[in-house]
Amino acid sequence: MAVLHVTDRDGRNHTLEGAEGWRVMEILRDHGVGVEGICGGACDCATCHVIVAPDWAGRLHPAREDELLKLDELPAIEATSRLSCQILWEEALDGLTLTLAEVN
């Protein structure tokens, strides 16, 4: 079973089961860890903003232009910030570690 590890906004850690072909946002949303995904993954709401563990950042598919533009719009981001709706889950991501960004 491939899993991802997420730290929520209260600092609690959760290990969640991935779902092949799903967006990471959808996995986080359906597990109720505090991701709303208001726009359903359209890069429009940034409610799915996460900070990826540094050793994982380079192993993900790089962000596309619309994700970068949305991230640039936010008042504060980290070097490894991503919109989790733009990361598709696959077995190879087993162990992916991320932290939910503050809502803003």
Binding site: E36, I38, E73, L74, P75, A76, E102, N104
Partner: peptide
């Protein structure tokens, strides 16, 4: 809806 729209503010 999901609530009211408000400008995002810098911290």
């Amino acid at each position: 809806g999901a609530g009211s729209f408000a400008p995002r503010k810098p911290k």
